[in-house]
Amino acid sequence: MTPISEEILQVEDLNKSFGRLAACRDISFSLHRGEVLGIVGESGSGKSTLLKCLAGMHAPDRGSVTISVSGDRRSLWNMDEAEREQLLPSMLSLIHQNPRDGLRLDVSAGGNISEPLMTSGERHYGSLRSVALDWLRNVEIDPGRIDDLPKTFSGGMQQRLQIARSLVTHPQLVLMDEPTGGLDVSVQAKLLDLLRRLVREFNLAAVLVTHDLGVARLLSDRLMVMQAGRVIETGLTDRVLEDPRQAYTQLLVSSVLQV
């Protein structure tokens, strides 16, 4: 990690509630290039809602989300919908917990990887094809399966394909929602290796939402602990996990099974 780097994401005073339920309260943080921020907390603590506010899916009630697009700082929720829809793919991409939400299951693997490029105007079949092949190799899927449908892929392969599709447009910011959820442990380990390599290789800024502290420790530089919509503790991953200061964080850390 370079010591002084560009600020990619800045969140200020973000609030979001659904009726009387406050899902996110007064959340502020910032994220630099090459940095991975883990957000941990139990179910219902507001992690996913926060991620959706960052991904342009839910408008926050209050507060701002500022994302830097090639050096130009843009406020995500201050632009109109058309502009947001147009800029979003070059700003960030979201990796869903369930690859079915991020993939088109009735479109071949190559088509899935190429779609974001076609949406941004690429019209050369040959070059789309070679980019798709490169990315399949990059995420360790046999390039011979380029024309197979994702529904014939295993869960781990589907997730790797989703990662390829998300990164093909080279977004500066990647949001991951439980990327290893629902996979068995050995596949999880491989996927974590892959993610770690890609994050370093492309110098990505990433927000990683997870309830698995093991995943958070492996991937993230900093950790943010959420409870009932608030950030209760934040710090370097090792500091938070080795020396948890809040009672809730201590509970969280101590509930991890030791094998």
Partner: peptide
Amino acid sequence: GLMQVRLY
């Protein structure tokens, strides 16, 4: 882009 995917 989606329509182009169909052609692809």
